[in-house]
Amino acid sequence: MNDSRASKPVLAVSLLLILCIGLAAAIRMAGSAPTYDGRSTDVSVLQQDAHAYDDSGADGVAAVMVNENNEKTAADNVVYSVVFNYRGYDTLGESFILIGAIAGTTAILRKKGNKASAAIVGTRGDAGQEPLKVVSYRTDQKSRTKYRRKPVIVKCAADFLLPFATVYGWYIILHGAMSPGGGFQGGVLAAGTVLLVYLAYGLTGIRKVFHSHFLHYSETAAEIVYVCIGLAGIAAGLHFCFNFVFPAGREESAMLMNDAVGYHVMAGISCLLIMMLEALDTDDGSSREEKKS
């Protein structure tokens, strides 16, 4: 621990400096006339006849995107279009992060550990060093018996809410193109069902209902589907992540990407939650209650 006396004032001065310069920049940002203020884009005119609208006088990326949105995509929600269409590649990267987090957390939390390899690989400085104190994840027996869940109300509420939560999540995913929402938001909502099940039935319930390996595999498969939709553009002689608008005019390939991401996020977040809960392993009482009844 660095106990030098100067460290606290230095830290305080640094934080104050960051804050002051940030505030000065904030005043400047709020005061400067924005490059894009959107006022020149009358969206009602745009909505009526997108093709006739002249976007040569656009005053920013956003104006162009808004103009192009009605003309070249099938979606009404411009944020959705930005996420899955104009910046679909970023979204791809974003879902990669989720896979990375899952693979990483699986590797870090793996129970079997690396005992065999650690023995071969050796540890640093094994001479004259105290052995590591190993503490179990599990809460001790005492607090376990003390705290007992009263699950009846929670169970009933969860049983009642589970279908709604799932349907609501998938509604948000599937209607992302039309209304606020999309794959990420809906996926997280749908993954909330894991927590509902956990609250009502504990870890045993989760183990009974969810198959975490299947979730992991299917989530990876959803990601592969996303990449393949992107690669379809190259196969068709166009660029990666090309957005095909299907003939009817209300469907586009970005919507398939949205659905893939929706499933991917739902399965991925569920997987993460299950892994965390398994690692903490605080199954308290509920399983015992079940055994009694």
Binding site: G93, I97, G104, A107, I108, V121
Partner: peptide, 24 residues
């Protein structure tokens, strides 16, 4: 996009650093 890639990089590099969890 650079930011997104930096984040993937940090996340995976951290996970790989901790990959041999029993290593001191």
């Amino acid at each position: 996009n650079i930011f997104v890639m930096i984040e993937i990089m940090t996340m995976t590099a951290v996970a790989l650093t901790a990959f041999r969890v029993d290593y001191e």
